[in-house]
Design a protein around this nucleic acid. Sequence first.
DNA 1: TTTAGCACTCTCTTTTCGAGAGTGCCAAAC
DNA 2: GTTTGGCACTCTCGAAAAGAGAGTGCTAAA
Lengths: 368, 368
Amino acid sequence: MSSGLTERRQTILKLVIQEFVETAQPVASETLVRKYRLNVSPATVRNELAALEELGYLMHLHTSAGRVPTDIGYRFFVENLMDRTTLSLPEQRMIRHQFYQVRGELDQWIQLAGSVLARTAQNASVVTPPRSADRLRFRQVELVAIHDTMALAVLVFHGGVVKQQTMALDVVRSPDDLRRCAARISSVLADLELSDVEDLLTRDQQQEGSEFGEFERQVLDLVARAMDAFEAQAQEQIYSDGLIEMLSQPEFIPALAREDAERAVERMRRALDILKSGRGLGLLIPQALASDGVQVIIGGENSADEMREYSVILARYGVERAVTGVLGVIGPTRMAYPRSISSVRYISSLMSDLLAELYHADQRSPES
Amino acid sequence: MSSGLTERRQTILKLVIQEFVETAQPVASETLVRKYRLNVSPATVRNELAALEELGYLMHLHTSAGRVPTDIGYRFFVENLMDRTTLSLPEQRMIRHQFYQVRGELDQWIQLAGSVLARTAQNASVVTPPRSADRLRFRQVELVAIHDTMALAVLVFHGGVVKQQTMALDVVRSPDDLRRCAARISSVLADLELSDVEDLLTRDQQQEGSEFGEFERQVLDLVARAMDAFEAQAQEQIYSDGLIEMLSQPEFIPALAREDAERAVERMRRALDILKSGRGLGLLIPQALASDGVQVIIGGENSADEMREYSVILARYGVERAVTGVLGVIGPTRMAYPRSISSVRYISSLMSDLLAELYHADQRSPES
DNA sequence: TTTAGCACTCTCTTTTCGAGAGTGCCAAAC
DNA sequence: GTTTGGCACTCTCGAAAAGAGAGTGCTAAA
């Protein structure tokens, strides 16, 4: 009978997980003894493995196969057994340098974060753009003529959000004309939210003589439409990268995953779907947005059924009370947790620092 | 002996291709007779199939399998046999409506074009953003304070290209201060290209007292850097979509593609790589940019070896002498050419019209 | 408690075999 | 001369069988 998780069993569990993560093959008692020079015989290890199985940390695919960790096993590993490493200093330096090279371009940060995460964790990555918890607030608009009957409206919102829209002009307008209109709108709408803008529009429509010229109304409509579109899609945007890295994991290679090739293909297709649609992640992201530190969700711990074979590692980044986003790694449960976690931790703190600079908050994160 | 491509042989070739495109299975003589109610016996059809094979239009995987089209067969089909259809009017209307809904947002056009192409052709799509053949020309800059020590620079270039950059401020600056600086820079750099900007910078550096203040120089540097970055990445940007659609084709499903599952997976991985890296497309796109009409590249006609099993359908879109891009469909050679081609043709002409409006060119494309 | 020995189980691979599909060819029919 | 029925031939595909190998679980001894 099992008498709990003794020291030695923990050691063996740790070795099984490390070995399995490395080789993607069920781990046999003899392999452990040989590879890690344990001072006991395979038979002893077998007894311990059987105990670990009974305790729920390992499982057996069939009688004559080695052991494979369960979700519970991984969980225990992540919480208690794992070496808490950080990325090596040269790696950190290289990553910081890459971010430096795209300084000033927030869009690029997101892409870069995704690509770095994917490369270091050798799995897929997800990044949501930094978002303010507040509603979008208007700041100013610039109107630039592209040619006689077409203008570009550059809308700037609080928090540095910029949106551009082209608009048709009913009549030819001089640059001065445009500038004057932009200035007027900018001052009228300054600091307003979408609902305020809409109120203003309906109020103006109801009274007899409109306060605004026809063109000004056109611009106002455009602003309202742009804000609406932005808020509508704000929640859903998830940038992802590293598909190829993830699909290079043995789980997706029938020759290595000892199983029906059929299933490997089906799995591939599903993984694609998860990343493209964000289904299965939907709940996790708001959750991560509301939590501190690095979240690790292992396999079936995730409520979404199609995610039962995947683990997700997420961390919030950004500046609290100003803008926050989520970034993380997603891959098969057989994942190099220490490396993935440290990578997520590092990138999130780096991004937080970068954003803090931008938002002038001097609350540097502990790491970095 | 074969005596050329008689009428009947052409009919049969057409049927074989249609049947194969539909079912993804080698086509047998009896199937043709039964399904298309030919008034000849299977034996006659077999003779014709043998002749078509000798002429190079069909091939045989092994003795007792039906016929499959060769690249040459597809080529002849596309040039001579294919029904030249267009998308149905309801489809056209729906697509136009979708574009209308994102009017004014060029970035969205590109995404939408990709998604529509992928859906109608049930294959992957590629779209390059519209680019001017000319170098980037500066138009104006706006500086907006994000907070005391951070500003957002919105750079507007000719042709409606907008780029945003954040920049750190060494000292606190008032909105007026920023506006004045932006105005100065805007007028100094107006209509200049990258090389001009760089010249101006070095020239200013060489003379004793700089013409610009320290802050102004900082903004100038930023402009130069942004223009450089833009031009560097301008060529390479390829947006792609429809991966899932393509990978749902039988070629990627081992159960349906009668062959080693191993190979299907490998093929999947390669397809991914092609779309992500754009390798194998590299040459095709500049080529399409220099050609009129819809380009069809079938299988091995493409010089890139990894593309031997794929066909690419490309068309240029945009306004000649102003901005042009390329869009198209990519998928297995067994592709619904009529539909894909008409879809590429329609979307490219639609995008051309939209851009023409933007660029005030009244050269509407023939279709649409 | 540990360990050696060994039977047992299950998978994975290879081989074999038969069924089925479809062709190619020949000789007769039109 | 073209078309067609008949039929042998070829090759694939799937199922079944057999053998090898891996690893366990159990037992009994150290």
